[in-house]
């Protein structure tokens, strides 16, 4: 197999093939895009005064984009659609905002990490709240 180092498209810093370093972004400029370059063409950008993007177009090699890992907080608050997440038996994460919005009513959490949803209450109409209440 050819040894294919990658280069940061922003600053041109080289990284060895299979380097896990780039997963955090470029150590020099923080860039998130990298291009696989043939070892023989490693210095083409400098020698031919081309940008890495130009080389990418010529070599038709796809630019590798490092996606930023989502923070835990975001996952907990917004990405979770479940009302209850069963982490392990006896350990639960509860999405109370979701519980306040959703029409499902959980009646029991099963032993095997399942939960039963009361379908009857989901079919019910929205209750009419009394109007003209003082706040």
């Amino acid at each position: 197999m050819n040894n294919m180092p990658h280069k940061c498209t922003k600053c041109g810093r080289e990284y060895k093939d299979g380097s896990t370093e780039i997963l955090k972004g470029c150590a020099s400029c923080g860039g998130k895009k990298f291009l696989y370059v043939k070892e023989t063409e490693l210095n083409r950008d400098v020698l031919e005064e081309k940008s890495i993007d130009d080389i990418a177009q010529e070599s038709r090699e796809e630019i590798l984009v490092i996606s930023e890992p989502k923070t835990k907080q975001e996952v907990q608050m917004y990405d979770r659609v479940e009302t209850i997440r069963i982490v392990a038996p006896g350990t639960y994460e509860l999405n109370i905002e979701k519980m306040a919005q959703s029409d499902e009513r959980i009646v029991s959490v099963g032993k095997e990490g399942s939960y039963i949803v009361d379908l009857m209450s989901m079919a019910k109409d929205e209750p009419k709240k009394k109007k003209g209440k003082r706040t």
């Binding site: 639960y92 509860l94 109370i96 959490v109």
Partner: peptide, 23 residues
């Protein structure tokens, strides 16, 4: 573990009350 499970159901129930029956 049973207490945790019941507590989880309890929270769901409390939120249900808040949606439907509380003034």
């Amino acid at each position: 573990i049973i207490r945790a499970r019941e507590a989880t159901e309890g929270v769901a129930e409390a939120m249900h009350w808040l949606r439907e029956d509380i003034d």
